[in-house]
Design a protein around this nucleic acid. Sequence first.
DNA 1: GAATTTTACTAAACAGTGTTTAGTTAATAA
DNA 2: TTATTAACTAAACACTGTTTAGTAAAATTC
Lengths: 201, 201
Amino acid sequence: MGIQERKERERESMKSRILDAAMELYLEKDLENASIRNIADRIEFSPATIYLYFRDKEEIFFELYNIAFGEFISALNKQPRTGDTWDRMYAGCKLYIDWALEHPKLYDLMFILEMPMNVIQQQHCKDIGGEAFSILVERVAACIEQGQLKIKDVQLASMMIWNMLHGIVSLIIKRRVLVPEEQESVMVQALLDNYMLLIKR
Amino acid sequence: MGIQERKERERESMKSRILDAAMELYLEKDLENASIRNIADRIEFSPATIYLYFRDKEEIFFELYNIAFGEFISALNKQPRTGDTWDRMYAGCKLYIDWALEHPKLYDLMFILEMPMNVIQQQHCKDIGGEAFSILVERVAACIEQGQLKIKDVQLASMMIWNMLHGIVSLIIKRRVLVPEEQESVMVQALLDNYMLLIKR
DNA sequence: GAATTTTACTAAACAGTGTTTAGTTAATAA
DNA sequence: TTATTAACTAAACACTGTTTAGTAAAATTC
């Protein structure tokens, strides 16, 4: 009885089409642009159809949050696991900043936007957020083992580094930094290098 | 001819009432709660009346942004200007974090929320943001003069410290930190103290 | 003081939003 | 072939920001 399976596939394909349209509309402009009616228009179905595949708009954006986080984690995991522990940690920090500035809207979804999520979704966010954080923790732990960091507490050091990275990136993305755009990358590099200099033993 | 003056006072008083209602509704719940119709309901006027005092909703929230920033700057300026330069700088950082965590919604207005503002407003935001930043810059400069900081570049050091502070605060406010709430203040203090330890010469 | 102008205000409408309900058509199962 | 189930939508509901036309009161002018 392959009908069930085919229907399941069709259902998943429809969910994907909805999510793709939602992401497109969001990336093209903003969250307001990704309205249920605009999504429906783009996939050429009625707005009501979307509610057969997602409970509400929030669930759609929760999926987009997951997609964004997945891409970020995948980019991190693509980095080589060989070489000096310090270089690996540094490369992770550099990727964090570069990826965020290249995908500011995805970063917004991940870390800045308000999400009044339900309990299960909140737990899931902690899990996926924890997964990304643990990649950093691992690299920081390796550095501490090698005696490359001033701070010996792995959790504290990881948290401090994450704060630094998020601080830089989020202020730039939200256009709260007073530096002209052409000097941006130079400033970001200077900030990162000086942070690294401070924590290096 | 006191009629003009009285009318001007009445106009300002009406603007205040609108802003007060908007701030109340925002602080009570969220931005969505501060709709033009809800504001109008609260001050017992029709929605259209609000448009006689503000161009659009954006202008109202631009004023709320200014009020929030004003309160923050005033809190900073209330701190004593005497004593050791390092202590003053530290106190400023501590106040930044404490104030932000005590007024998370005002901090949101100031640094996190999206504001598609017009050119004049954008310039004004840079000015008022620059005013707050210059308070930090002053204190950092004094520390550098006293040879209390590892970093000698005033702008760079100020930016690094601001990033740290904003990183901590914004991740906590946006509930992206995995630490339970009762350990929050302990963690924040540990983060701050360790950052200070790193930059101290 | 009466007539005119200006000011302050609002009801109603427009176009948009998320979401629900009832009803229809097409595909599957009996 | 009929009964059932699944997929989809039109229309409505209660919101949203904003504009327009019209009204009543206050201020000014004659």
